[in-house]
Design a protein around this nucleic acid. Structure first.
Length: 892
RNA sequence: GCCGGGAUGGUGAAAUCGGCAGACACAGCGGACUUAAAAUCCGCAGUUGCGAAAGCGACGUGGGGGUUCAAGUCCCCCUCCCGGCACCA
């Protein structure tokens, strides 16, 4: 190919007209070209032969401005999406807006702006920012905004399906109330006793009628499914496991003793009337059911403890003023402690009810107490207290002088009847521990006894083996305006549609129930919708009579529970999405977002996926195969906040250094899973690096163009004979870099080292400028270098690389240009460096041929002068050789 | 208290499987270019001792112990920081 070799290197441009990297000129120019092409990032129809890749980043709340943390999150996803496109995948990369929620109402209160107008203008502003950053979203095909009726009508549609399946229900319950939000919060939205949005505002407990979703129906599946999700971080899975909190145990029913009868027979608390063992309470007599995970310790129970809000306590308090007063105090104390978040540390105390219960296993009579450490909403709100084998019960029993009875001993101790008591109490029994003092069960291993005693209680009818979850049903009612109206009415003629009683669902055909505009937002409690007569006054769909419309709206986590399904079919107006499309794209191949949603959005959306599967919409069990949680962006070692004045503005960064530098820095400064300390000087450094790439590539772009033109625009083949050493060295580095980055993308995602590798390559190219100009390095090599360099940087710096790609004479977009392939032969070093140690200390580094055998390497090492100095007067005991890595001589 | 994650130069970090600790950058210092500055380029750079220098040596990955020819990496104990959960029976 003489004509190629004869292409002259371009003249060095004179110093007075340098080619300057100017992102402020390049980036807007490309941005408007991209904006003008609605199909640029459109995924192909699923009929195509390419493998699919569905890449989703968690959608933002449209607050009005992107946070630098968003930039990091979206840049990670965008780099991956761009890489996968170049690897030939059919990539769906969408974006949307989590657009309902309280800040819009606060803005209305503060500035008098309508929530809708405020939200939509924020969306517009943030979309401009996202476009400036060069994020490759298919806006036209996929954009979703949850505040639009086209979206939220499907929330309503799902709500109706949930009603039909008895997954949505209404009941009165104690709820978390945030005064600043002026609404109810779900358990998941209470963080350390405070509101998740108002970190310093304690959550109050209020009794309210609420809509709930029966997420507990799926508790087992949500928990067990975690074991089948290796692509999710352990951290998130562990958090979800703890949140769901399944405990296997036994419910045991204790009959409440008839005190009047006992008094007549000379009652003694530990003596049971004969024949009363295992007795259930007679008709009309109350009983108490406790939940325990350690039924094997039941012979050690010495009292029953009830939560202050237990139904029986309320009953007894009616006729016992002193008890009522004590209990009220306890309820108030529990509520206060929950607010301040130190529920776990308040001192245990309680009060005796004077009543007694009968242990069905032993027939013993146990005193019934009310205790402040018993939760009303976990298990049955009642426990059997076993002070010998439970720390909390021990503490309580010691305080009040209740008996402590040992019924379990370690398996290694003196045997079944060893209750010598030399072991510290409380003794928390292990599985192998052995029962003592437990009647016919004495001698059984604890774990087996749990099983057998549970079965026994079941058989005798005073208990059952069961499991309890920490997870509660999801309260979705919000007393707010800016959310999805719940699509039911209450018929004033008493018509009933579906249960619950009195509720008439709005028929599908009447959806959406539109959120009215022009609603006065005030700070008063109660939903603003309740003050809009045109909204509240409705017609019963069953009888046509007057009806009152539900004024609660849905929790915004409903919106985000299924938004990514809508991406696959965003313009569908007859269904939430087409099953065919969803089944092609789902599950999401890579989901990326902050870990703060580990037990909010990420558990709700798993639940929603299972519900949608069970109503036949989709086939997948889980929404996403892989989840990545990126680290926070911090500044000067601290979380960014307006009050600290250390907030980094993405616009300012882009204005100063350009989007490419901002993006590249966000990936370069730290591995994506770690926290990143934002340093503006670092962005400046990356910007200098991109400027160097620009200057060099612009200089040699004509060479690339000429070479590729001569070859008919084929990809330059790498291996050609007669390569000079300088050229071979550059090609080696190039192919090592290609291999490294390709690997980083498919595994570790340590883009910081990917970018460092490109920097090394560029440094080497820059120092070979003389050799390239003199012709020592062939034009074909130069062409391959710059062509590949541009492709390698394309996922990180899309504007710069698009510009350079065009400057090299390419007319087709770089977005779908093929990712370079590493040539292992070219990447291979022909000479390697081997460190030589003497007694583990570095003596020297020797250079040997890459294919040198062990003998040669050892001989070379031994012959080395510096090594010899270390070996003087010593005897070599052993020589360790690690192939291609090191030689270590052990000497005496 | 329990469960995760982390601690490496002045700073962000690298070392992917036990094999040259500090790649790549930032900040710094010295130099070139310039009337000057900016920009750019070249060089130095873990700490410390000896030396005029080339160089030679010691120490060094939060602390202490261990395994190994060899430890940032594996094991045991401890400290501190971040995140989550926390009287869940």
């Amino acid at each position: 190919m003489p004509e190629i070799d004869n292409i002259a290197a371009p003249e060095r441009r004179s110093d007075d007209e340098p080619v300057r990297y100017n992102p402020a000129e390049i980036e807007p120019r490309w941005q408007s070209r991209w904006d003008a092409d609605p199909a640029l990032y459109r995924a192909e129809d699923h009929a195509g032969g390419k493998p699919k890749f569905f890449c989703v980043e968690m959608l933002p709340y449209p607050s009005g401005a992107l946070h630098i943390g968003h930039v990091r999150n979206y840049t990670i996803g965008d780099a991956l999406a761009r890489f996968m496109r170049m690897r030939g995948f059919n990539v769906l990369h969408p974006m949307g807006w989590d657009a309902f929620g309280l800040p819009a109402e606060n803005a209305a209160l503060k500035n008098g702006r309508a929530p809708k107008e405020w939200t939509l203008s924020n969306i517009a502003a943030m979309k401009v920012q996202m476009r400036r950053i060069g994020l490759s979203y298919d806006w036209h095909g996929t954009e979703v905004a949850s505040c639009l009726p086209e979206y939220y009508r499907w929330n309503q549609w799902f709500f109706l399906r949930m009603l039909e399946k008895d997954l949505a229900y209404r009941r009165s319950s104690k709820v978390n109330w945030c005064n600043l939000c002026a609404t109810v919060l779900a358990n998941e939205q209470v963080v350390g006793g405070c509101c998740w949005r108002h970190e310093d505002t304690p959550v109050e407990q209020r009794e309210l009628e609420q809509w709930f979703f029966r997420i507990t129906k799926y508790a087992d599946e949500l928990l067990d499914g975690l074991d089948t999700m290796p692509g999710w971080p352990d951290k998130v899975r562990t958090m979800q496991r703890n949140w769901i909190g399944r405990s296997y145990g036994t419910e045991v029913t204790f009959a409440v003793a008839d005190d009047t009868a006992l008094k007549g027979t000379g009652f003694s608390p530990s003596v049971t009337p004969p024949g009363k063992e295992g007795a259930l309470a007679p008709e009309g007599q109350p009983s108490i059911t406790v939940f325990t995970t350690r039924v094997d310790t039941i012979f050690g129970a010495t009292s029953i403890q009830l939560a202050p809000e237990h139904a029986l306590v309320k009953e007894w308090a009616k006729t016992d003023a002193a008890l009522a007063a004590d209990v009220d105090k306890m309820v108030a104390e529990q509520a206060a402690a929950k607010q301040t978040g130190d529920f776990g540390t308040i001192e245990k105390h309680g009060v005796s009810t004077g009543k007694h219960a009968i242990n069905p296993f032993t027939g013993e009579t146990l005193p019934i107490w009310v205790a402040n450490y018993i939760l009303a909403d976990y298990g049955t709100g009642a426990i059997m207290s076993v002070p010998a084998h439970d720390e909390r019960d021990y503490e309580f029993a010691t305080k009040y002088g209740l008996p402590i009875k040992r019924v379990i001993a370690p398996a290694t101790s003196g045997g079944a009847n060893d209750d010598s008591g030399d072991l510290a109490l409380p003794y928390i029994a292990e599985d192998e521990a052995v029962l003592i003092n437990s009647g016919e069960w004495t001698g059984e291993a604890a774990l087996e006894a749990q099983e057998k005693m549970g079965l026994f209680a079941e058989h005798k009818g005073f208990g059952k083996r069961t499991k309890t979850f920490r997870l509660k049903d999801w309260g979705v009612s919000r007393q707010r305006y800016w959310g999805t109206p719940i699509p039911v009415v209450y018929c004033q003629n008493g018509h009933e549609g579906v249960p619950p009683k009195g509720v008439v669902p709005v028929p599908d055909a009447q959806l959406p129930v539109l959120l009215p505009d022009n609603v006065a937002i005030t700070a008063e409690n109660g939903s603003p919708l309740g003050r809009v007569p045109e909204f509240v006054n409705a017609t019963c769909p069953v009888c046509g009579g007057p009806a009152r419309r539900e004024t609660d709206t849905m929790d915004t986590f409903v919106d985000s529970s299924w938004y990514f399904y809508r991406y696959t079919d965003a313009h569908n107006n007859t269904a939430p999405f087409s099953s065919e499309k969803a089944n092609y794209w789902f599950p999401i191949d890579q989901y990326i977002g902050g870990v703060e949603h580990a037990i909010l959005h990420l558990i709700y959306s798993r639940y929603w996926t299972k519900v949608m599967r069970d109503i036949g919409l989709i086939k997948n069990d889980e929404p996403a195969t892989r989840l990545f949680t990126q680290g926070m962006v911090i500044k000067d070692g601290a979380k960014m906040s307006k009050s600290k004045g250390n907030v980094v503005s993405p616009d300012e960064m882009i204005g100063k250094f350009g989007a490419d530098a901002t993006r590249t820095y966000a990936l370069f400064a730290a591995p994506p899973d770690r926290d990143l300390d934002w340093q503006e000087d670092g962005v400046a450094g990356v910007s200098r690096f991109l400027a160097r790439v620009y200057r060099l590539t612009m200089k040699y772009a004509p060479v690339v163009k000429a070479v590729e033109h001569a070859k008919g625009d084929e990809i330059a083949p790498s291996a050609f004979a007669g390569q000079t050493p300088a050229g071979a060295k550059l090609l080696r580095t190039l192919h090592q870099t290609i291999a490294k980055i390709s690997e980083d993308f498919s595994g570790r995602w340590h883009f910081n080292t990917s970018i460092a590798a490109v920097m090394i390559l560029v440094n080497e190219i820059a120092s070979s400028e003389g050799a390239m100009d003199s012709g020592e390095i062939a034009p074909a090599t130069i062409a391959e270098l710059f062509r590949s360099l541009t492709l390698l940087l394309a996922p990180f710096a899309p504007f710069l690389t698009a510009e350079l790609w065009e400057q090299m004479g390419h007319t087709s977009s770089i977005n779908h240009a093929a990712w370079p392939v590493a040539d292992a032969t070219l990447a291979k070093d022909d000479e390697i460096e081997i460190p030589v140690q003497v007694n583990g200390k570095l003596a020297n580094v020797i250079k040997v041929a890459a294919d040198a055998d062990e003998e040669t390497i050892k001989a070379t090492a031994l012959a080395d002068e510096k090594v010899q100095q270390r070996l003087a007067d010593k005897t070599i005991v052993k020589t360790i050789y690690v192939k291609g890595k090191l030689v270590n001589m052990v000497v005496k």
